[in-house]
Simulated assay, not measured.
Amino acid sequence: MKVVLPDVDAVIFDMDGLVLDTETTYFIAWQQAAAQMGYVLPDAFCESLSGLHFQQVSDMILAYCGHAFSLDHFNQMSGKIWRDYVSHHGIPVKNGFFNLLDVITQFNLPFCLATNSLRANALECLDLAGLNAIFTTLVTREMCVNPKPAPDLFIKASELLTVPIGRCLILEDSFSGVMAAVQAGGITGYVPSQVPPDKRAEFLADFKATDLEDVSRMLAYKVTTRPL
């Protein structure tokens, strides 16, 4: 069934798992650090942390491993493993991002990034992916009282873009992010980063796309067929 978007005047991107394939690199670092400490973090558990901010991830890892688990040591080790990994491999950009960016710029739509990451971490990831000059508007964890799944980040993004939230297309890859986008009142697109897709996110979102290439086709069709 063909998806027809409502009127879109701005685009808000999530970062981890949506624009950048950072989640794979985080999972590798978490699992290797845990293994060195004598613990196992299964793939399914790591995937359940998708879209959560740092403190929520830390709390869930501690709850999973038990209170004898040294979270400080784990964070130090996983941080070092992550930086070693991405310094050699970089961070991949998700399929379709550049084509979607072409559509957005062709039609002069304002856009920004809204992420649960702290600003310094977001800038580091964008730089490692070669996207450090792309997003002139960046909404990060320290700019809002409540992180996703609260709607604060997206409401702030709408204010900075000076576009009503109801005309902002918000693209998310996780259930937590979709919850935030829906609560904010944006046009919510679910672009799953995990297989199988989260059924809860599919139910809540206005539409599901295979990838950002799929979104670029939808958006191009919508903008070019909009009545003058």
Rank of each mutant, 00 (worst) to 15 (best):
A44S: 14
V93M: 11
L113F: 01
M37G: 03
G90Q: 13
H73L: 12
N95T: 15
H67D: 15
D21M: 01
S87A: 12
L41C: 07
A122H: 00
V19F: 06
I81A: 03
D127G: 06
A29R: 03
E47P: 00
L123E: 10
Q76N: 11
H53C: 13
V86S: 02
Q32C: 05
Y26Q: 04
H73N: 11
Y64C: 06
L109K: 05
L118R: 10
S78M: 15
C65H: 08
H73K: 15
H89Q: 14
T25G: 03
S87E: 08
F111P: 02
R83Q: 13
Y26H: 12
D59V: 07
V86Y: 04
F97S: 04
A120E: 11
A35Y: 13
H67R: 13
S50V: 14
C65K: 03
D14W: 01
E124N: 07
N75A: 09
V40M: 09
S50C: 13
R119P: 00
V57S: 09
V86I: 15
G130R: 12
T24E: 10
H88T: 06
G17A: 09
R119D: 03
Y39L: 09
E47H: 15
D72R: 13
D102G: 07
S70N: 15
Y39V: 11
Q31R: 15
M15V: 01
C125L: 08
Q32W: 04
M77D: 06
A35G: 07
Q36D: 11
D21H: 00
F98Y: 15
Q106N: 07
S50M: 13
G66Q: 09
F74K: 05
I81Q: 05
A35D: 12
Q36I: 01
H89R: 14
M37T: 01
L128K: 13
E23V: 05
N108C: 10
Q56E: 15
L49R: 01
L131A: 06
L126G: 02
A120S: 10
I12W: 01
F45W: 07
V86H: 08
I81M: 02
N95A: 14
P42I: 07
F45P: 02
L113Y: 05
T105M: 09
Q36V: 06
A34V: 05
L49M: 12
Y39F: 15
Q76H: 09
Q106R: 12
V103L: 02
L123A: 03
L62E: 14
V40K: 13
C46E: 14
C46K: 07
I12F: 02
A68F: 11
F45E: 09
N99F: 08
N132H: 11
L101D: 03
M60F: 08
F45S: 10
T24Y: 04
V103E: 00
H88N: 07
L118F: 05
N116A: 14
V103Y: 00
P92L: 13
A68Y: 09
V93W: 06
F107G: 04
N132V: 03
L126S: 00
E124A: 12
A29N: 00
C46D: 10
D84S: 09
D59L: 07
Q55E: 14
I104K: 01
L123Q: 13
D102R: 09
M77G: 00
D16T: 06
Q31I: 01
G96P: 04
A129Q: 07
C112A: 04
Y64H: 15
L49I: 08
L126D: 00
